[in-house]
Design a protein around this nucleic acid. Sequence first.
DNA 1: AATAAGATCGAACGGTCGTGCTTTTTGTTT
DNA 2: AAACAAAAAGCACGACCGTTCGATCTTATT
Lengths: 233, 233
Amino acid sequence: MATNIERPELTVAVVQSDEPADGRRVRGDRTRQAILARAVDIASVEGLEGLSLGRLAKEADVSKSGLFAHFGSKLELQLETVRAASEIFEEHVWLPVADADPGIVQLAALMESWLRYFRDDTFSGGCFFSNAYHEFDSRPGPVRDEIAAQKRRWMAAVVYHAGVAARLAQLKPGTDLEQLAFEIDAAGAMANSLWQLERDAEAFGRAETAIRSRLHGASTAAGRRALAAAGLT
Amino acid sequence: MATNIERPELTVAVVQSDEPADGRRVRGDRTRQAILARAVDIASVEGLEGLSLGRLAKEADVSKSGLFAHFGSKLELQLETVRAASEIFEEHVWLPVADADPGIVQLAALMESWLRYFRDDTFSGGCFFSNAYHEFDSRPGPVRDEIAAQKRRWMAAVVYHAGVAARLAQLKPGTDLEQLAFEIDAAGAMANSLWQLERDAEAFGRAETAIRSRLHGASTAAGRRALAAAGLT
DNA sequence: AATAAGATCGAACGGTCGTGCTTTTTGTTT
DNA sequence: AAACAAAAAGCACGACCGTTCGATCTTATT
């Protein structure tokens, strides 16, 4: 796999201003948003397959058929739910660090933001995507494709920030960016698992330790200075 | 969390010789085993909640009611399925390294065995437990408890082997065993995720690199010598 | 050969599933 | 106020869900 050096794009800003133009078509969109908000939350607990139209309709205070009319099929509802979850993810993980100092500082800030998003229980059933990855990892189809694409986007973004850091000489020459991304991503994901399964808050400390340790190990003096200046240990 | 230094016990050897004594009660047990074998496989794809009695009955070539009689409730079927999966896990991951040189060598061998178990697609839907952790991490109840217990047993075992290595002076004094276990476990779990979602075989290489790197970083000269002597890089 | 116990089955229960079709309500535009 | 399209509701469908029950078949013990 070649190192991805494209700048990752946020979709949230675009999607948020989706079609509210000239005041038309607002009623339907509002209920649709409300439905999807509940859908994401339910699916984070019950899974995308366990998300049922009947229950969703009840919790969103609409009739089952009215709800159904919005999406046309359960598959489409699932896809829309994944997209809605992506927006929430970007809003909570990406946006807070969008203005951080590019390079290793932004990378470290992103990981911290990610851990905070876990700890804050942004979705009531834990990270929507951690669950979805495992639910659909052996269920071919559009939903799986969408989820896999989301994971690729995430990994690519981590690698991108590492790449910026490398270009800024904040990382030792020859650093394997994909390997670095793999390891810090693994630590974060494991923290989420332990937090969700055991409510083990220590897991976040372990993840932070692991991530810092990887970043410091791969950093140049300039990189370490940048981290220190930003207050990131 | 205090460092667990208890020796982990394998249940597989015990359970395998479960009740075949004196030739009684064999017919029911055989079909029961066959049912559970299918159940584990289906659940690894569809999840424990997605595992339905109707489908399982069809695939196991028994009537739905006949199947049901074996377990009395879906909950009980799920619990038995988790236990059956535990046996398979122990058989494929633990047993192959049961005779390895205690300490860091056995620890490294265990991780390799674990990665091999992933790569071999032991269950058709990927690692049963990776899926189950995330499916039940926000569904309180006996199934979740059983699954969480299984995860604790695994982590405790990894820590145990690290503890043996520490006592043998194969690890640097002051090494945080839990932290070490956290990091190498995270790498393995991430490899499984990427393998399952993207069929990315490189992920295993990344996990091996990460694990070796952690073990070497924490090893004493004696530890590194033991690893080298065992051919584990 | 008779009996008892356990294993398996067939049919059915009340519910819920996802999905259509038809009707009513709602909001906007004339 | 009337007309109109969009949005939501009502209702029904076939399929499958987990579960129950009584009958049948298999096996081991008398």
